[in-house]
Amino acid sequence: MQRAAHLLSNSTLVPKQYQSTWVKRDKYGNQEGPTTQNPNAISNCVLALNMSQRLGADPLMIMQNLYIVEGRPGWSSQFITAAINACGKFSPLRFEIEDLGEQTFEWSEKVWEQNPQTGKNFRKDVSQKARLKNMRCVAWAIEKATGERISSPPVTIEMAVLEGWYGKDGSKWKTMPEVMLRYRAASFFGKLYAPELLMGIQTAEEIHDTIDLSEMSPGSFGFDEEPKPMTMDDIKATLPQAATSEHINVDTGEVTPKEMAPAREKVSVQEKPHVQKEKQAAPKEPAPQPQQQNNLNPNALNQNAFPCPRTDGERMVTEADCEKCSMRPRCPEWDNVELPEEG
């Protein structure tokens, strides 16, 4: 088997995942760059020979219809139809397609967007809505041993939308829906009535519809990059961009003019007005002050003063006091205010 695998790996008629060397050529057929060795060629050929023996099929046919998707083998849909027709248990596979009329469908698609702050691309879910022609497909055949007509479960465009197949990157459901309906119906038929032909292997189209993949190397598919957690910069990039005279609250997404942005407006100062009016109406001669007023600073009478959040409102301060305060960077009063860089 190793000698047969070595012979096949040196052939240029087998797919590239089985070839011992990879050569990149330009559009004129000239070689570009050095020749790359494929360390998995012999092993892949041995596995293909083993599967051909188990199925009683030609090794070259197995190689041409078996794909490696994210480390998992997958049959082409054409191979499944051919295997069912050639097994001798059924009549040739037939398909029934019924038009169910137009319906409004909603689905989610992933698109790539660039973060203007970091320059990196990130994936974003975008909701789509459109009216599509819903169709229903059933694969059927006559079982020769009993003469009974057997059918696959129905496959519809609505199923493709609900299962998430329709919105995948590069999905063929949008461009050739009738072909994809037949492929999926044939796969369902083979899984139910001829599982020994598929040996538990899904079709390459099913694996593509399950996860987002792209071709990583000849004959092998996988993820473009490992999924990474979304950072705060990525989250901020999805928020609306503020104008120069506007301020965006990152927590709520509210857009307000910059002069209204400081958070001190949220601090209630309604408890002080009547006290201040009493002090303004008091006689000019000094009057005895209660013990509680000894803690007030001179800013208590200032109309522009506001309660200090670091003292739970017990002390009145002004913006000038805050600018001199050494604890300003960690003060909740200044969380949403852009502070000048310290020289």
Rank of each mutant, 00 (worst) to 15 (best):
G200F: 08
A204W: 08
Q202S: 13
E205A: 09
A204Q: 06
F221R: 00
E205F: 09
M216G: 02
A204C: 15
E206Y: 03
S214F: 08
P195Y: 03
H208S: 10
E225H: 15
F221A: 10
I211H: 14
S214G: 14
K228R: 10
D209R: 04
L198H: 01
L197H: 07
I207L: 15
D209I: 09
S217F: 05
M199W: 10
G200N: 02
S220C: 06
G200R: 07
E205Y: 09
G219E: 08
T210F: 13
M216Q: 13
D212T: 12
E215S: 03
I201F: 09
E215L: 10
L197T: 04
E206K: 04
L197R: 05
G222F: 11
Q202W: 14
P227T: 10
E225T: 15
F223R: 02
Q202V: 07
L197K: 07
D212A: 10
P227R: 12
A204H: 07
G222K: 11
I207N: 03
L198P: 08
D209Y: 06
P227C: 11
T203M: 03
T210S: 15
D224R: 14
E226M: 14
E196N: 02
A204I: 08
K228M: 13
Q202I: 04
E196R: 06
S214K: 03
E196Q: 13
I207E: 05
I207M: 14
D212K: 05
H208D: 01
L198K: 04
P195S: 03
G200W: 11
I207R: 03
P218E: 09
L198E: 02
D209M: 01
I201A: 02
I207Q: 15
T210V: 01
D212I: 07
I211V: 15
Q202C: 08
E215N: 01
T210G: 09
E196D: 15
D209V: 07
E206L: 07
P195E: 06
T203Y: 05
K228Q: 11
P218I: 01
L197G: 08
D209L: 01
G219H: 09
E226S: 14
S214E: 14
I211M: 12
I207W: 00
E225K: 11
G222S: 13
D224P: 07
E205Q: 12
L197D: 00
D209Q: 11
S217N: 08
M199Q: 11
D224L: 12
H208T: 09
F223V: 10
L213E: 00
E226W: 12
E196H: 15
K228H: 12
D209W: 01
G222N: 08
E206S: 07
E196W: 08
Q202G: 02
G219R: 03
E205R: 00
E206H: 06
L198A: 00
D212C: 01
Q202Y: 11
G222A: 11
H208F: 14
A194G: 02
P218D: 14
S220E: 13
T203D: 00
